[in-house]
Structures are given as C-alpha cells and as structure tokens.
C-alpha cells in the first residue's frame, strides 16, 4: 500500500512537469497550426544553458529560469519571424521539416561544442527528501512540480486576463476573424512561438535537476510532449495538465511493478492508443 502511494505521489510530481514541458507544443499548434519539432531543440537548449550556468557560475537551476524564459522567448520569436513566417502559406509538412532541421542543427551543434558525454547537475538539495506520513518525497521533484504548477497558473491567468491572452485565444479560434477585428496576427504568431519556446526552455531548466544532460535529451522528451498534448487535447490547458499527470503515474506504475526498462514504452503505447481512438472518433 505504501509502495503504491509512493509510486502515485512520484508519478503526480513528475506528471506536472510533463504537462509544463508539453504545453508550449500545444500552444504553438493551437495558434499557428504548426507542429513544432524544434520543441525538442528548445528543451535540450534549456538543460544545456542551465547546466552551463551551473558549471560556470554555480547558478542554481531554479534561478536560471530567469534567464531561460526570456532567452527562450527571444529565440522562439526569432525562429518564427525569420523562418516559420516565410513558409506561412506552404503545406504543413514543409514547416514540420523546417523545424526538424532547426532541431538537428541545435542537437549537432551541442555535440560539437560539448561532446556526447552524459553530464549531470548536482545541487545541495538534489538528493534531499521529505517524509510525509509514510511517504518519502524527493525534494527536487517537489520543487520542480510546484514551479510547474505555478507556471500553469501564470499561463492560465495570462490567457484569461490579459489583452495578449485575448489576442492569442482569438487567433487560435479563428485567425481570419481575428485579423478582421484588428488583431495583428503576425505579431501574435511570434508571441505564441516565443511563449511556447520559453516554456520549453524553462522546462529544461527544471528537468536538469533530475535528468542527465545530453544532446539526446530533446528526442526523449519531445515524444512524451507529443503524447501529453495529443492525450490532453492540444490546446486545452486543463486537459494537458491531467494528461501529463496521467502519463507520469502510468510510467511510474510500469517502472515499479513491471520493469524500469519499460518506462519509456508507456508514452509510445499511450500515444498510439490515443491516436487510434481519435481516428475512431472522427470516423
């Protein structure tokens, strides 16, 4: 029983981070109708920038969020303005391949600069844990989960309460009607891409606390992001949170009761099942 509770608790904590990591992908798809394969690049850049700041200046990963958020926004908005924007009227697969190219460039640049070795980042609290009743919860996971939830609240308030949020929602719901109501759609696209990338990079900062830093980081978590976003309903902020937590729990249950090696199989299975069910829905 205690085992099960521990597994569930740990799954929930990881799941909130999954949701935070994935949300940018859903936001960009919702507003631009573009599948951002460069999401993997921004996740990886996030962990590398955080690791590098820690290794060079001893900066705490949580503090480095103050850098990865604006940096991610600037990089994302630039990618949209300089690259994605040019392919506005091309078929979706063109943009998909373009952004895949961006990811490959980033990944290989990281191999070139830092090599392929796994690195990890250790802080004073990395191995700490907290006893809650019979459960033992990892401190980094608690912190990261709390930051993710906070990020979700900020994002939800931004979408609901600010003019930028209103513009993002209008463009996501009907681009043409938004433009005809005076919404500067071009700028909204750049902002959406910027926010989505800022979320991905800062997710990298958070995740550097308990995942190893390698140029392949993005590959693994891009797939999980897809899984969460497809399961949660692309642009549905609440749905994505629930889907992230669901995936976190499913993975931890599998790792604990079946085998750790099967952990990453879960997201493949869930993604496949979700796509098959969606297909059945639309038939």
């Amino acid at each position: 029983m205690v085992d099960l509770l521990s597994v569930l608790a740990s799954g929930i904590l990881v799941g909130t981070v999954y949701a935070y990591m994935a949300y940018g992908l859903g936001l960009i798809y919702g507003v631009l109708r573009v599948v951002n394969l460069a999401h993997g690049a921004f996740l990886t850049l996030g962990v590398y920038v955080t690791w590098w700041l820690n290794a060079t200046f001893g900066m705490d990963p949580l503090v480095s969020i103050l850098i990865t958020v604006p940096l991610g926004f600037a990089l994302g908005a630039t990618v949209e303005r300089t690259l994605v924007f040019r392919l506005r009227d091309s078929p979706p697969v063109t943009t998909l391949l373009l952004l895949f190219g961006v990811w490959l460039i980033v990944r290989n640049a990281l191999y070139l600069i830092f090599g392929g070795a796994d690195r990890s980042l250790l802080t004073s609290y990395s191995l700490e844990s907290l006893a809650v009743g019979p459960l033992t919860l990892s401190i980094p996971r608690l912190i990261v989960s709390a930051f993710s939830l906070l990020g979700f609240v900020v994002l939800a308030l931004m979408l609901k309460r600010t003019w930028s949020g209103l513009a993002l929602r209008a463009v996501a719901q009907d681009r043409e009607a938004a433009a005809l109501s005076g919404v500067p759609v071009n700028r909204v696209w750049a902002v959406a891409f910027g926010i989505g990338s800022a979320l991905a990079m800062s997710a990298g900062s958070l995740m550097s606390l308990f995942y190893s830093v390698t140029p392949e980081f993005g590959a693994r978590f891009l797939l999980k992001s897809f899984c969460v976003v497809v399961l949660g309903g692309l642009t549905n902020i609440g749905g994505i949170l629930v889907a992230g937590i669901g995936l976190g729990i499913a993975e931890d249950l599998t790792a604990f009761y079946i085998h750790t090696g099967y952990r990453d199989v879960v997201s493949f299975l869930v993604l496949t099942a979700a796509l098959v069910m969606r297909r059945a829905d639309s038939d």
Partner: peptide
C-alpha cells in the same frame, strides 16, 4: 469592418469577450 454571411464567432469565448477583441484591437 465587416460581418460574415455565416457568423464566425470565437466559439470558446463568452459573448462579451468576443466583442472585446474588436474593441481592444480595432480602430
């Protein structure tokens, strides 16, 4: 400004919010 033959409302907003889009971003 224009209206549409088949209205194109922002389906996931409230009525007031969709009017607010025009009010904030228009002339």
């Amino acid at each position: 400004a224009r209206t549409f033959q088949v209205p194109r409302p922002f389906l996931a907003m409230t009525a007031f919010e969709s009017v607010l889009v025009g009010a904030q971003f228009g002339r």
